[in-house]
Each structure stands twice: as C-alpha cells, then as structure tokens.
Design a protein around this nucleic acid. Sequence first.
DNA 1: CATGAATGAGATTTCATTCAT
DNA 2: AATGAATGAAATCTCATTCAT
Lengths: 210, 210, 210, 210
Amino acid sequence: MSEKTLTLSLDRREQILEAAMTCFAECGFHQTSMHDISAKAGISVGLIYRYFKSKEEMIAALAAEHKKDIASLLERAADAPSLLEAMEVIFTSHCCARSPHILSAFVVDLFAEASRNRRVAKIVRSVMRTKAAGVAALIARSPELKKAKSGLDAQAIAEMIFALNDGTMMRSVLSPANVSVSQQREGQLKVARSLWHLLFSHTSHGNGHR
Amino acid sequence: MSEKTLTLSLDRREQILEAAMTCFAECGFHQTSMHDISAKAGISVGLIYRYFKSKEEMIAALAAEHKKDIASLLERAADAPSLLEAMEVIFTSHCCARSPHILSAFVVDLFAEASRNRRVAKIVRSVMRTKAAGVAALIARSPELKKAKSGLDAQAIAEMIFALNDGTMMRSVLSPANVSVSQQREGQLKVARSLWHLLFSHTSHGNGHR
Amino acid sequence: MSEKTLTLSLDRREQILEAAMTCFAECGFHQTSMHDISAKAGISVGLIYRYFKSKEEMIAALAAEHKKDIASLLERAADAPSLLEAMEVIFTSHCCARSPHILSAFVVDLFAEASRNRRVAKIVRSVMRTKAAGVAALIARSPELKKAKSGLDAQAIAEMIFALNDGTMMRSVLSPANVSVSQQREGQLKVARSLWHLLFSHTSHGNGHR
Amino acid sequence: MSEKTLTLSLDRREQILEAAMTCFAECGFHQTSMHDISAKAGISVGLIYRYFKSKEEMIAALAAEHKKDIASLLERAADAPSLLEAMEVIFTSHCCARSPHILSAFVVDLFAEASRNRRVAKIVRSVMRTKAAGVAALIARSPELKKAKSGLDAQAIAEMIFALNDGTMMRSVLSPANVSVSQQREGQLKVARSLWHLLFSHTSHGNGHR
DNA sequence: CATGAATGAGATTTCATTCAT
DNA sequence: AATGAATGAAATCTCATTCAT
C-alpha cells in the first residue's frame, strides 16, 4: 500500500508540476496565481500545499526537473552517431516537448528569476555546468575536433554552442504563433548545421542546407 | 515657459524611467511595486501617474528606450573601422552601461514579458528586426564577407551573431557577483573574436586570443 | 470486548486531551491547529474527530476536566489538617502539575475564551461556584473563622482567597523561564501565608514567613 | 500643514486602535480578522496597513496604550487624599472606561497572549513593574503603613493589592451581562475596602461596608 | 505640479472538517 | 478503528490606481 500511496503521491506531484509549468510559461511566475495552477490541475488550492510548501518551492522543483531534462537530453546527444547529429538533438530539444512556446518561455523566465532568486540561481547555474561539461565531453571525444582548424578548445566550442542554443531559444519566444513547430525545428536545425560547418568543415561547398 | 516645462517634464520622465529600470532589473517587472519606483526616484507615487498611464506603459516606454539604445549601438558599430571591431562593440555593449547585471537582467525580463504581452512583444520584435537589419547591412558592405567561405549569406550571419550575442547576455545574468565588469567584457570580447574567426578567418594560426 | 473497547477509547480520549492541553497551553486555542494536536498525540487528524465533534468540543472537554481537577483539589484541601495548610494546597496547586507554565497559560486562555464562548463560560462559571462553595465551607467549619476579627463573612473571605489565587496565577504566566517550579511554589506559599495572617492572625509577630 | 497632517494621522491611528480594542475584547486577538477591524473603524483594510505593519503590531500598540493607561491610573491614585481612596481608584478603574467587559476581556487576552509572544510579554511585564513600583511608592509614603501590624513590607503589600486586583478583573469577564457597571463597581469597592481593612485597620468594628 | 491617503480586489497560505479506503 | 488526501472558505497582507488637497 505504501508503494501505491507513494506512486499516487508522485503522480499528483507530477500533475501539479505539469499544470504549474503550463501556467508559468503562459503567464510568468509572478503573474500566475496558485488558483490558476489549481484550476489547471483540476484540484483545490489547498491540496497544492500538501505537495509544495510554497510557490517558490514549485519554481525550484520545476527548475530541478529542468535540470534532469537537460541531463537526459545530453545522454541522448551522447548516443548520437555523430557530433552534427548530437548538435541537432540539442538545438531542437525545446521544439518537441509539449507545446511550442511553453518550454522556451519557461526557461527564459527561469533565467530572469535566477537573476534575483538565490535558490533558483543555484539550480540554473548547475544546469549550465551540466550542459557545458556534457557537451565539452562530447566534443573532446569526437573525431571532428581534430580536423577543426578553428584553434578553439573543446571548452570554448561547448560554450559557443550553448550560448547560441540559449540565444535562439530566447529569441524563439517571440516567433509569431503562426510559425509551426516543424518550422521552428527547421530553423533550429539550420542554425545547428551552420555552426557545425563553421566549427568543423573546411569545404564550403559541403554546406548543403538552405 | 512651455519650453521649460517641457524640458522639465522630460527630465522627470527620464528620472522616473531611470528609477524604474533599476527597480525592474533588480526585482523584475511584477515584483516591483509603484511605491518602489517612486521611492527610488524620490518622488510620490501619484506623480508617476502624471507621466505614465500605468505600470505597463512604463514597461513599454522602457522597451522603447531599449530600442533606441540598440539603434544607437548599431550606429556606433557602423562607425567602427572593421567588422571585427563592430562585433566587439556589439558584444560588449551590455557590459558598460550602468552596473553590470542591470541591463542583462532587464533584457531577459523584457523577453520573458514579451512572450505574453502583445504590446511589449511588438516592440521587442521590432528591436530584433532593427538589430538584424543593421548588422546584415554591416556585413553586406564589409570586405570580410567576400572572403568568407562559410557559404552563409549576410542574413544568416547576422542572425547567428545576434543569437550568440543574446545567448551570452542571457547567461551573464548568472555570472557570480565577484566577476567584475572588465572580466565580463573580456569574456564577451573573446566570444566575439571567436565567432569572427569562425566566420571570416581562414588561417587558423591567426586566432591569437586566449 | 465492549468493556475493553470502552477502556481503550477512554485512554485514547485521555491521550488526545493531554496532547491538546499541551498544545493549547503552548499556542493558545485558536493558534493551535488540529494537525498540531494530532502530531503531538501521535495519531491522525481524522481519529480526533471520532472522539470529539469539533475543536470547540475539545476545549469544552478540557474545561470540564479542569472542573474535575478543581473539585479534587478542594477535596485535598478539605483533608488538610488546618486552614492555613488548606490554603497552601490551593495556592500551590498549579505549580506542581505538568510543566510550570502549562496550567496557568491554559487557565488564563480558558477565562479569555469564556468571555466570548457561552459554552465555555458556563463551565468556567460552574468552576468558580465550585471553588467558592468549597472554600466557603472550608472556612465556615474552621476554628480560625471565630478568631478572625476582620468582620468578613466566610463567603467574602472565600472570594478574596480565590481572587488572590487567580490573580497570582494570571501573573505567573509572565514569570521568566528561569524561575524554577520550586521558586514559584515558594512565592505562592508566601502569598498564601500572608493572606492567612491578614485574615486570621492577630499577633503581628507570628508572621514568620520570609 | 504638517501639524494638521500629523494630527490627522494620530486621529486615524487612534480610531483604528479604538476599533481594534473593541474587536479584540469581543472576539479575542486571533479570532478577530483585519476585516472585522476595518469594518468597525469604517475604513478599508488596506488603510490599516499604512498605520500598522501587521496585526501583531496592533496588539503591541494596544499593549503600549494599556501601559500608558496604567501609568495615568497610578497618577490619579497618587493624587487621592488617602490610601483607601487610592485603592478604590485602582480597583474600580476597569469598571468605568468604555463598556463594562471590554477592558477586562482585553487585559485577560493580553496576559494569554503575553504567555507566548515575546514582544507582548515584554510590554506586559513592564506594565506589571510600573504598577508594582507605583503602588509600593504609594504605600511607602502613606501613614497607614506605620500603623499596619501585618508585618508585610510595602513591596509585599503592593503585590498583594495587584494580585487581588488582577484576580477580580480576571473573574469579572465572567460576570453575567445582567450585572450593571455600577454593580460591578460596588463589588470592586467592597473588595478594595476589605483588603484595606485587613491590611491597615485594627478595629474590626470599623468595617462598615456591607 | 505634487502629494500621499484611501480603496478594494486579489495574492498566498492555513486550517477545520469530511470521507473514501 | 484509523488514516490522511482533499476541500474550500477565510485570514493576512500587498498593490495598482485614484483623487482631494
């Protein structure tokens, strides 16, 4: 029974976080009311407080989940057959999950929040480190690195990849609603490939993407 | 007198916006109260409402100011003797003005806000267009472009520059307080030069920056 | 089995009341939550409701228990060999039971509650009558009364004893934590003896208390 | 203008405290809502917070007012032509001000609160010291003291007076509504005179009160 | 032009109580 | 008998905005 109870509890927790994520992405942390979240989750306000001590704790929990998502993303990227494909996985990651804007909007809010909330800042910093380390490893072991004549080390390349990745994501929150998920995907792929070519390709002609 | 009144008014407006900017950057739009702003500006709450119809209007006004700042930044970049130097101007722009984090935090908040506020979205989109067009022009006329063998057109290059620029800025809101402005500057310069090399340099050895 | 069940139930009831008493004394009736009580009693919230219809009922039950405590106190006082000793029993009663402040704080809260809760008021009034009658009887039968030249009748003397008793108890909730139980006892004894001397002694020299 | 503003503010503050006092006495600190107070004062909830940072601060403010009331009561007592009359002033003080029960109920609540609220405890302790010192001085200078053969010093007598005073007040919160203010006054006077006789009178026959 | 007192809706959070298991 | 998840009303406190002075 304790197992079932635990499962049930975890489901509830998930359900609440899912609702919160959607609300936060739609309205921002501080414009989303607990009532909004409870309504979206289809439960009462009070129940949320059995799972989270405060609204801030929910934000932190979501930030922690984000960290896990990033970790699993990196694993998937590590499994990719080539560095180019790994980069494609990374650059398109926020285009698939859930609805288009949701994730981007959430992450931008997360950074904004991190700039004034120690607790969130700590988590987001750790996300950044996870990402940087993961990709640096990816690059370090890739055959492309040796061919690269850019003179940049794995660390610098990783940082560039992520800055560009975050930058496109930040800008994507403004892409008009009529841009479909697959169009966004295309755009992201284009950026990823462009960067790959810049970093590792020496033949300009091979750059076959539009 | 009307002229003086006008001047006075504009000063007041500036004074209020200056205070608001600081508060917004410190606490975020929706966690900053009108009282916070009035206190920072050293005036009464009521007076703010003689200059701005609402809080939202202040955000919009600041977004508009941001747009002007970007425009003037682009002018300065256009005056730079070389494309590399232009990129250096662009990448370090948010490191000088006011205190370190202030501007970055504000801009990240602005994007977050834009993702759910039509009015702000409109302005920020126009900022993005301004930037993109400005830099595209910069590149189009630069001698480097012809030498570039990346196969990317001016537009794509401009987008990459800005995505990277926004990405590093977004990440900078998390740089610890003990990172000085000049250190941040250094970091930004490094990124700018790396990108420049990737885009336009064919001699890997020339990449002399650390 | 029904007998055992009943016994069990009574134990439970006692256990709950004991926990409630402690919580109430520590935090006050209306700042103690049912959860606090259930936690202190080591049971679930729901179980409390099998024994008490509501929180108010618990307060009433505790008031009723207090009434019994007072009745038994009076019996003990009646068994005392002299009136002075009876008074000593009465004045020190709240110093022994449980931890020092607990009982005083509870009783003061009980009076506060009684001033706006009919049900509690009824019980507390009855406590007061019990006390008054009991002590009046004690005095009426005591040899001291005849010697007393104060001109006060048993009823008036009883009232004075209790007003003084309640007054010292009310003030004792403020005695700092570093006053030990035995010190409090000393203080109460001193007051009891002083009053006894005032009421019944005609030789000022016999007033041997410190 | 600043003077008028100040006056206005003080009036407001007074008005709010007056309303709060009534509500607190009627319902207790923790059963009175801010809305109750604002309704009783005829203002909005928000306005209360311009004058008091929190509910707790209002309680503290009222406790501080109580302290002043006690100080002024002691001054009046000191002006009384005789010690007996001084005691009469003291014992009847809570019968006149405002409506009958209000003050008593408030003070009992104040003691209850003091038993778990450091801030209030501090104030109430200081009230107790003020009272004790004031009356001890009163007694020390009175001619009765010399005649007293009780063997009690001024300090002990003062404490007895106050314990009795507080005790009768605590008990008065339970006097039924049909007991008029003047009847309560009578009762208090009776107690005061009884005590005076016990303390200072040597002729039992002179005890002329009922 | 300038103030800041005043409003009242709304946000977060708590809690007595119920009820399915 | 016993649990504790669930509810939702209510409490405290905040804040954008208005308006009399």
